[in-house]
């Protein structure tokens, strides 16, 4: 493993452990391409990304990544059926308008979707709400007036969503401060990673 991939966050390492070597991955909302780059280096994936932010695109190209400068909702239509082994949405789900359409479209492209998001029901967020403030946490660092997030979901919300849509959750991981959380994740996990597929 090279120097720049050694100190990857636990979420990255967990996602890498799910993904098979040399598989093809589309990262929806890939940002500056850190995760894609990590997966390319550690799992030799054939990766691509979609990203809306222009500055982030330069960073991706610098890393040698293939990236499409557009928004997820319109970009996702541009790929062939079953074109990928995995779709990854890492910290982008909460910024999507049509979540259910994007997930359905993702299943057109790949059998497995890996979704990571910050948990809105983390206990300090609950405390904020209890005190009458909108939650601000390490993984939800924005104020109500400048947040790019459109969706505020908890781990429980997401599990209910999958149940309702009849999606199969084949794996789930919960994290706080770079450690895995096993107990009461909806309360104590700051972030979650789910692997879902169709039944």
């Amino acid at each position: 493993m090279s120097e720049d991939t050694k100190r990857a966050p636990l979420e990255f390492r967990t996602i890498a452990s799910i993904i098979e070597k040399e598989s093809s991955v589309l990262d929806l909302g890939c940002g500056t391409g850190d995760l894609l780059y990590y997966l390319t280096k550690t799992k030799q994936i054939n990766g691509q990304g979609i990203e809306i932010d222009e500055e982030a695109i330069y960073k991706c190209v610098e890393k040698g990544l293939t990236v499409f400068h557009t928004d997820i909702e319109s970009g996702i239509d541009s790929y062939p059926d079953a074109g990928f082994n995995y779709i990854v949405m890492y910290n982008s789900l909460q910024q999507i308008r049509q979540v259910d359409r994007v997930i359905e479209e993702s299943f057109r492209l790949a059998e497995r979707i890996i979704i990571g998001f910050p948990n809105f029901a983390y206990f300090t967020a609950r405390k904020d709400l209890l005190l009458g403030n909108s939650p601000v946490t390490k993984n939800l660092p924005y104020q109500w007036y400048d947040t790019p997030n459109l969706r505020f979901l908890s781990i429980k919300d997401f599990e209910k969503f999958c149940g309702g849509k009849n999606y199969k959750i084949s794996d789930r991981f919960f994290f706080s401060e770079n450690k895995e959380i096993k107990l009461f994740p909806n309360l104590f996990a700051q972030t979650a990673v789910f692997v879902i597929s169709k039944r």
């Binding site: 695109i57 293939t66 062939p80």
Partner: peptide, 21 residues
């Protein structure tokens, strides 16, 4: 340009696209 990119992607070409401000 986006139409070009979409056609290339659908055909499986490795394509990077950017719209520069």
């Amino acid at each position: 340009s986006e139409a070009t990119v979409k056609l290339l992607k659908l055909k499986g070409y490795d394509t990077t696209y950017i719209e520069i401000k």
